[in-house]
């Protein structure tokens, strides 16, 4: 079986791990009924009633799918 010849240094390990980063999502800021909401661009949005329960997905004024 092939085995590593040398111990992987801490520096190499940390260099590799430092490249694993989270991406910041590009959000669109909209104001609905005086409330600021953030949403993904070109994606359907969840429509909620006044109590906050999700009703359905909507995109450009058109009901797209159920939640």
């Amino acid at each position: 079986m092939a085995v590593p010849k040398r111990k992987k240094s801490r520096s190499n390990t940390h260099s590799r791990r430092s490249q694993w980063k989270a991406q910041v999502p590009n959000l669109v800021k909209t104001v609905e009924n005086g409330k600021v909401t953030y949403s993904l661009p070109h994606h359907a949005k969840v429509v909620e009633d006044s109590a906050g329960t999700p009703l359905f997905l909507e995109y450009k004024g058109r009901k797209v799918a159920d939640v």
Binding site: H42, H43, A44, L57, V64, A65
Partner: peptide, 8 residues
Amino acid sequence: YTRITKIG
């Protein structure tokens, strides 16, 4: 004839 909408 078709419409694609992304839903997450």
